[in-house]
Design a protein around this nucleic acid. Structure first.
Lengths: 193, 193
DNA sequence: ATAAGATGAATGGCGGTTCAGTCACCCGCC
DNA sequence: GGCGGGTGACTGAACCGCCATTCATCTTAT
């Protein structure tokens, strides 16, 4: 009679705890308390503390990419898709501040050690962005000589930094309000001259 | 007869160790071994392990910003300055891969806990970028309506992501070779239409 | 009654920090 | 010039608190 959404509750609790104190400064017992269960119970569902972070990140990232992929499919052209993607990137983070905190800050700590673990999920987001850029080039709306990989990283980096600044700045403004400005700069930057 | 550059040796050793294993996974004894001294000696020069990271980061970041500031002063206009800044950002990291590893990856860990400690150094880099953008607007080469803060973060984020990808990708190519492409995208993105 | 899930006190080891001791060097005195 | 004692950097073994993980025991559903 293992509770089927206990792992989910643990992950959700972990998101809140990691957001508050950071991965390395969070105790497994903190997560347990937050989830309203005993510390030992966590080990019925996760092998180690690392496993919680890896699972959390995998799950959230997969969900994130899936949501974005679905949403932009409706858009008529690559430029519209990119605009939608940027908006969505910001809106999704803004709507879940604690998740944003973890993804923006904790992921980084992880990058060094969970590199392998999350590489697949991250690269699928890069692949999504890259494919939209390719599409834009094919449509003739983006520069034919555009170095797509570099443009992908540029856009991701720009969005990411906006999000990080917003998180570190205690979220004192609406992140999504900056989406148009970012899109304007990037889209003009990659457009045909 | 306290050795006046012992702290520097410790910091340099710490850079190498943190680069290899990450801050939280580095032992103070590892740093000592790397520096060829006893663990206890570190505590003659630094209060805590955290203190090493904070000092290291402050020092490297201050030096970095100073170098960039000096170098771009020679350039004739804001656009040339930005190009030079982007090149230099990449060259400086590329020339010191271990430092790059620490700055790109460890900075992130720090951000959460040493936020206050490194805030000044980071924001001075942002201020530098921002002032060049302002200058470009005043010169009439960049859009008069450019949201400078957002453009600053966009550029920093783009460079930062390029550097992070390069570090995580085991530095399998020349980072500086990508500088022109990044500059092309950004500069076209912020230029007057 | 049974078994599976849940508990949380106990364990074990890790690692930052300390500190009693060592060593090299300097200075003043004979 | 040699000697003795003082100084302070340096050492590294030991300390000690912390916390991930375990497991004997308890709960609860059927």
């Amino acid at each position: 009679m293992r509770d089927p959404d206990k792992p989910q509750q643990i992950i959700d609790a972990a998101v809140r705890v990691f957001a508050r104190k950071g991965y390395y400064n969070s105790r497994v017992s903190d997560i347990a308390k937050e989830a309203g269960i005993a510390a030992g119970t966590i080990y019925l569902y996760f092998r180690t503390k690392d496993d919680i972070l890896v699972t959390l990140f995998r799950e959230k990232m997969t969900e994130f990419v899936g949501t974005v992929r679905k949403a932009i499919a409706d858009e008529p052209d690559a430029v519209a898709k990119l605009r939608r993607l940027i908006h969505l990137h910001f809106e999704l983070l803004e709507g879940r501040p604690e998740l944003a905190e973890v993804v923006q800050v904790e992921q980084r700590q992880g990058q060094k050690f969970f590199r392998g673990a999350s590489a697949h999920e991250i690269s699928s987001y890069f692949a999504l962005i890259g494919s939209v850029l390719e599409e834009g080039v094919a449509e003739g709306r983006l520069r034919p000589t555009l170095p797509v990989k570099i443009a992908t990283k540029t856009l991701f980096g720009a969005m990411d930094q906006m999000a990080t600044s917003w998180v570190l700045g205690k979220r004192g403004y609406q992140l999504a309000d900056t989406a148009d400005a970012v899109a304007d700069i990037f889209l003009q930057g990659v457009a045909v001259r």
